[in-house]
Design a protein around this nucleic acid. Sequence first.
RNA 1: GCGGCUAUAGUUCAGUGGCAGAACGCCGCUCUGUGGCAGCGGAUGUCGUGGGUUCGACCCCCACUGGCCGCCCCA
Length: 453
Amino acid sequence: MRAALKAVRGTRDLLPDQTPLWNNVETTARNLFARYGFGEIRTPVLEATELFARGVGEETDIVSKEMFTWEDRARAGGEGVHGPESKAQSLTLRPENTAGVVRAYIEHQMAHSGALQKLYYIGPQFRRERPQRGRYRQFWQIGAEVIGPPSSGSESPLRDAEILEMLAGFLDKLGVRGWRLELSSVGSYQDRVRYNEILRAALQPIRSRLCGDCQRRAETNPLRVLDCKVPDDQALIGALPQISDHISADSQTHFSAVRAALEACGVPYTLNPRLVRGLDYYTRTTFEFTVSTGLGTQNALLGGGRYDGLSEMLGGPRSPGIGFAIGEDRLILTLQAQQEEDARASGAPPGELLDAYIAPLTPAQNATALALARELRCAGLRIEVGDGSFKLRKSFEIADSLARHIVLLGEDEAGSGVFTVKAFASGEQTKIPRARLAEALHGVQSRGSNFVQ
RNA sequence: GCGGCUAUAGUUCAGUGGCAGAACGCCGCUCUGUGGCAGCGGAUGUCGUGGGUUCGACCCCCACUGGCCGCCCCA
């Protein structure tokens, strides 16, 4: 026998027992984002490799070792925009979506309207990392970007606070418990470069007292030292210069305004001057929402920040912006872990039941049963139909596992047009004429009514 | 990309160098127009894949693949 094919490493199927939760999350996002004036954008999964090299940063881990990249075939005909000498082009499956959105913003000249652009996306991203809990090679992000020319107010700290306040509302609406907003400002690009050198210098004298990892990081990526989790290093790290003391006056004023607006909105946050983000384009405000349930060591549920120079890095007009990306897979893991906690507490099994199961009693009733099902489905009911070859006992067992009612359809019913209907919750059995059947089956909503239908 | 742990029935997991096991689930019967309960019976399977050691490997060794955890990093 030939070996069965499997989903490729780090990718997975989402089966019908999972998708209602995913749809609920996505619908909640769409509805909420729309209230803030966001419109949906869908960009290609495939982009020129150069987009990420320039946008995300050549030296970042994502670009230097985690992208699915290949050389597309050279074009034989040599016609079109790339000219007759068109060569093979390096293509990449997008590892994140901000660069693509900003590319589209530039390509469609959205800056020319002068208006602030508020765009959101939901879609798969790809990174060639080792799979772990909450980390997949194809993973989903729900993200949004606010971008526009400076005259549109895109630089205003109000936009930062609005994004953060919206995210807090989103997590609350989904019922995520125990989330934490960690907030920082990394200053302008120039601030960051300068601080990096200051940090490197400060690390020199204490380097030998740090853990092995940090001794290496002190050379390769000083900012990462701040993120160290080794307890013995904490005191040393605490004494290092903080980026908040080394950002420009402008950046400090901006950050204060963000915090004031958050406080006015009642959004709780924790200042984390050690918050380190891995993408080159971040400037000023950066943030992460973390959660303790269900994610193991991958406790970052979403992250984002300001990227005031990204448009220019990609060859566009000056257009400051701010955005975020939610790790949808991680959000789902968190919600599922919470549901399990709740189920343990209440003992109530989750589940979404159909309105009725139609049980033909002999194969002769099959056709009538399907016609009846069609009629009821047209009336908006969720219906499953059995098969007349099943024994009645089996029909009841299946019906009880799937639906709130069973509708019996035997010779009597076919002849009289009056159906025997039993409600499983109450055990009550009644005779209902066909004309009133749909109405009778509606009744109480199913247990899964908090899910989108 | 590196390190550790791991892979047995649909599921959760036992197991021993010498006949492949339990629970739950599934199917059948008791029970041919009334389910949930109970009793009885049944099938669970290339023991992840490929090599090697051995008279004999689910067990020991190697490689590969997947999963989990840690590192790196990120959502």
